[in-house]
Nucleic acid binder design. Structure first.
Lengths: 213, 213
DNA sequence: TTCTACACGTGACGC
DNA sequence: TGCGTCACGTGTAGA
């Protein structure tokens, strides 16, 4: 006789535990298949497959619930619902942040007009024979004098100041003059806490900054 | 193992139809079926409820799939899986953007030393009798002369320049002097494309900017 | 055919 | 008690 042990096993696993828990006794279905006699208990072939599928889905839902911070209910449907709202919130936040960041970066972006301005600026500089220039000299123990001549671009001065600040360089006295398609910037700078600034390193830093803005 | 074979747990579709057909499909119910005679066929009271529940879950899963951009498969499990990865991606992106933005804003952040510097600056200003001041005057048709005296804070000048640029105000000639805990800024400004700047509005704008930086 | 994914109706369990 | 949710095994449709 074929006692379907594996059949009983796979089916019973939870039922058995449940039965053992509540002591309600084993209850099992007789198979009512087209070929079915009273003693015959057989299962469909996809029983295990279906069980795996269910388990998989449940597991994924559990994972989903685990990464969604706000949970209103433990229901499967509500898990998905919360995930949906959370995704929407995340999307909105990403868009907002991205927009904000873009706005922040675009405070001195190049527009088409700016482009033409730049062309005009470069042309002006060439016409007037103005060369870009970065000079750094020592004033006293912890102050440097800086002279910068660069092509005029919109927002470039702002970016330069920002970069200086980010590198811990504090402008004490600064002068900007715009003329003939060029920025002439002279500044007296010092370190963040009065630290001494090395001349050559500062000059290189300035040139790096200028090349990037 | 004691399993009652006579107990019928699974009364499925075909049994149902069978029962409706001939009425003899039901064999007998030993224990679970409290109310079940041979001729009656309906039993599941929660049939419609369960159907709604399933429909709800399926619908939510469909919605979830609709808002997740990358879909590898149409399976329910894969839908949830893709949603999970998408959420993780979104979370990472939010964190990255937030960090980047914070970094960008923190280029001129207040540290403890800065705080004391600010205190010293305010104290200095009070000691020397320097008042904050914003003055705007007309130079010619499209240029304004601006004089600003504000408390010295790290990065404040940079922020001011940035704000001006973001509002389409172009500094032509600018002078910054740091003394006695204060920034003295004088600047000749004009509109982005040579547009005329209204005096009062510009002054209000400047004061708003200063209050925020 | 077999394989895969799904919807179905049902009993069990918790509140 | 009833209502809501779940896992179960099965039939079935598409590839």
């Amino acid at each position: 006789m074929e006692y379907e042990d594996e059949d009983r096993l796979c089916v019973t696993l939870e039922e058995f535990s449940l039965a053992t828990e509540n002591g309600s006794g084993m209850k099992r279905t007789g198979r009512k298949r087209s070929y079915d006699d009273d003693t015959r208990e057989y299962k469909s072939k996809n029983l295990e497959t279906e069980r795996r599928r269910r388990e998989k889905l449940s597991s994924r839902l559990l994972m989903l619930r685990s990464i969604v911070p706000i949970i209103t209910n433990m229901n499967k449907a509500t898990i998905v619902e919360d995930a949906i709202t959370y995704i929407e919130k995340l999307q909105a936040k990403v868009q907002s942040l991205s927009h904000e960041l873009h706005q922040m970066e675009a405070t001195s972006e190049d527009t088409a007009e700016t482009k033409t301005d730049e062309i005009d600026a470069a042309e002006d500089m060439r016409k007037w024979g103005i060369q870009e220039e970065v000079r750094v000299a020592q004033i006293d123990g912890n102050k440097l004098w800086v002279k910068i001549i660069i092509e005029k671009k919109r927002g470039r001065f702002s970016k330069l100041m920002e970069a200086l600040n980010s590198f811990g360089i504090e402008p004490i006295d600064t002068n900007l003059t715009t003329t003939k398609g060029a920025f002439l910037i002279t500044s007296c700078i010092q370190g963040k806490d009065g630290d001494r600034l090395a001349i050559h390193q500062t000059k290189n830093l300035l040139q790096d900054i200028i090349n990037e803005i």
